[in-house]
Each structure stands twice: as structure tokens, then as C-alpha cells.
Amino acid sequence: MARPMVHAEGVRKHFGRLEVLKGIDLTVERGQVCCLLGPSGSGKSTFLRCINHLEKVDGGRLTVDGDLVGYRQSGNRLHELREAEVAERRREIGMVFQRFNLFPHLTALENVTEAPVRVAGVNRTDARQEALRLLERVGLADRADHYPAQLSGGQQQRVAIARALAMQPKLMLFDEPTSALDPELVGDVLDVMRDLAADGMTMVVVTHEIGFAREVGDTAVFMDEGVVVEAGDPRRVLVDPEQERTRAFLSKVL
């Protein structure tokens, strides 16, 4: 079997004296969709942010495609990576945020072309063409010249997905991508994500959309208070969970 895309062994993280992750073990295989669920404060978003080193891991091992996150191992020593090396690794990991975080001073098209042109060194014409193709894919080809403030939340989030895809990532991270959206706009964003999953993209999704997790997820991971309570096939974990804690959570959100 090929090496897993994301592999975590006993990952720990604390903010001051508050321990947010208390030893997370988790594996996401290539091409799989892994959904992280749990109450707020369970550490699921923190874990997601550790994967692209937006948060620094304090203990345990976390690898993406075989590479340690934030460190280089030589013999028995771990060398912390420099900013430039961290940036290099992040190019291959796309991230979509709860609050979209589009660049408000750039148009939708410029949002998508910014990183390919400035980071990957793609020439402007090619980047533009690729960006238009991606905007087409998320159903927003006619909004290319709009500024984020002129787009609805759902449209902004779809531009944000196109922006992440423009760097041709091998892994996509979604941090509650539909939580800030009006209910009627959630569907469009989930459709785009479903389409991505069907295309074989490896995805880690922090979400409260139980339906999406059940339908699209290959694995569901239920977290609470910094530990993985239960993980496995979403059609089992989210339908007939073994743990009482999972059952209590599901009865509240469903």
C-alpha cells in the first residue's frame, strides 16, 4: 500500500497551560475524504491547522506524504524548518477557511492567480487561463472581475476553493467551510466539494454537516476534548456509534 497522505501519531498541542490535543492518532490515505466532527473546543480545527503548520505541533509525529510537518529529520535530530521551507511545503496543501479569507483588494480572478504568479512563477497568461477554468468549475466564470465584497458568502467560499486549487495541491484542508454561510448557500459549496472528492482529491474536512460526512466521507473521526473518541466508516460511526459520547453528540445535532 502507498504511504498515507496524512499520518499522525500521538500529536499533542497546548496553548499556554490548556492542552488542546492530547495525543491524536489518525491516518488519511491517498484519495480519501476524512471528516472530522465534534463539539466546538474539541480540537478538530487545531489539528487541521497543525497539518499545514499554521499551528506548531508540540509533541508526537505528524507527516504529510511522508514528510514531517515543520521539521526535517537527520539521524536522531529534528531540525525546525525555516520560514521559506515551511512556505515551500504549504504550496502543496490547499486550505479553505470558515470565514473565506479572500483578499478583499483583489478581484475573484486576481485572488486565484496571485499565488500561482507570485509563488509558483507561472506566467500571467497561463495563470489567468487556468484561473478562469477553475472559476468555471466552481460555477463562477461570470464573476471573475467582481471584488469579494460584491459576492455572496457561498460565492466567496467557492472562489476560495478555486484559489486553493490553483496551486495544484495534493491535499485539501477544509475548516468548517459552510459554517458561516446562509443555509440556502451551503448546497452550492458542498456540491463543489463533492465534485472534488469524486475527482479523487485527498481531503480533510472539519464539518458539522453530518449528511455530507455520511455521503462523501471515506472515514469519519469523532473528536472530543482533544482526543479521538471514535473513528471509522461514517455509515457506522455517524449512524450507529459504539461510544456513548458520540451518540450524545449526534442526538443533539441531528
Partner: peptide
């Protein structure tokens, strides 16, 4: 700060 995070997640270095 989300702007900086978004830029970093795209592989942009701090100065850029």
C-alpha cells in the same frame, strides 16, 4: 490575521 493565514496557506513567504 486571517489574511496572513490565507496567504501563508498558499505558500507565500512572510515578506511577500
Amino acid at each position: 490575521p486571517g489574511q496572513t493565514e490565507a496567504a501563508h496557506s498558499l505558500g507565500m513567504k512572510p515578506a511577500l
